[in-house]
């Protein structure tokens, strides 16, 4: 009898100390020209990597071996080796790269170049720029449809989501959205495309087949001016049921019922919250707070902020290695 107790006690003890999920997050710090590495086991910064000037868009390569970070003021994308946590190489991009998207095979990288109204295509293996697509003024948001056939680019002054056929590299549709579209995200089942408009203050829900706006999410926070609500980053859970939207200087993340598109909750985070990433097990959502120089950790199922981690100056983007 006591033996059984002992065993279960040991099991319990093991469960308590063994990390349930040790993931590694990489955060780009726009002002300090660094990337902070966060261990989600202890929720601490384990390393700060020096990178080029003005790091913003950041993402793991498909094989999980490298982290790509767009360093806009150096007009290139740097490659961080995840094993040695050092910059080991760089990729060509157009001038002032900001955000980028990768195809599923990890062969091509599509880069938004804010300064010359183009999306550049970079061959990741050969590390050369293989083409450019002319888009609207100030391209920013980039995402690929789950089947990889359509690339979405948002242009901030043209106020459009451009649908680009990845096979022909031609624009096949343009959807006008509210002012200054910053970020685009598909639901995993491809049923909806969400586009955030920072100055317009809304998130447009687009039918990716008909390519029309079918609904809009707007936000209303008592005591806050409408102008202070500026949606940027978007995260949608894999089951397509819950959306999270970072509201910039409103210092809040909106929780959205992704079926009815109603806002169900506002979570108070740090100042000027922009981008976000889920841990691979989707238990946590990490958001970057630019002005308070920290990252808030949101417990996804409890819909609560459980932790704040200090990083570098003006944290901008965030990415996780997929296990």
């Amino acid at each position: 009898m006591w033996r059984r107790y002992l065993i279960s006690a040991i099991v319990l003890w093991l469960a308590a100390v063994t990390p349930a999920s040790a993931f590694i997050a990489y955060v780009s710090n726009e002002k300090s020209n660094t990337v902070s590495v966060i261990d989600t086991d202890k929720w601490v910064v384990t390393k700060t990597i020096k990178v080029g000037q003005r790091p913003r868009g950041i993402e793991f390569t498909r094989d999980g071996k490298f982290v790509l970070v767009a360093v806009g003021d150096d007009d290139k994308i740097e490659v961080i080796d995840a094993a040695s946590q050092r910059v080991v190489d760089s990729l060509p991009s157009g001038p002032d790269p900001e955000l980028f998207a990768q195809d599923a095979a990890g062969k091509f990288l599509y880069v938004a170049n804010e300064n010359d109204n183009t999306v550049s295509i970079v061959d990741l293996e050969k590390r050369v720029r293989v083409g450019d697509i002319q888009v609207g003024v100030e391209p920013e948001g980039m995402t690929l449809s789950p089947d990889g056939k359509i690339l979405i680019n948002t242009s901030e002054t043209t106020n459009m989501a451009h649908f680009i056929d990845t096979a022909t590299r031609q624009i096949v549709a343009n959807v006008l959205v509210d002012a200054r579209p910053r970020f685009a995200e598909f639901k995993h089942d491809s049923s909806e495309l969400w586009v955030s408009s920072e100055i317009g203050g809304t998130v447009s829900i687009i039918d990716p087949v008909k390519r029309v706006i079918t609904g809009k999410i707007s936000f209303n926070i008592p005591g806050l001016r409408r102008e202070a609500i500026q949606p940027v980053g978007i995260g949608i859970t894999r089951d397509g049921k819950t959306g999270f939207i970072a509201l910039g200087p409103a210092n809040r993340v909106a929780v959205v019922d992704a079926t009815s598109h109603a806002v169900t909750k506002y979570l108070l985070v740090g100042q000027r919250v922009w981008h976000m990433a889920f841990t691979p097990d989707e238990k946590y959502l990490l958001v970057t707070n630019g002005v308070s120089n920290d990252v808030s950790v949101i417990d996804v199922s409890a819909q609560k902020v459980i932790k704040t981690i200090q990083v570098g100056e003006l944290p901008w983007g965030i990415t996780f290695a997929q296990p």
Partner: peptide, 10 residues
């Protein structure tokens, strides 16, 4: 110029 970049799509 900016208007015409947008205008070419419309």
């Amino acid at each position: 110029e900016d208007n015409n970049t947008t205008g070419k799509f419309l």
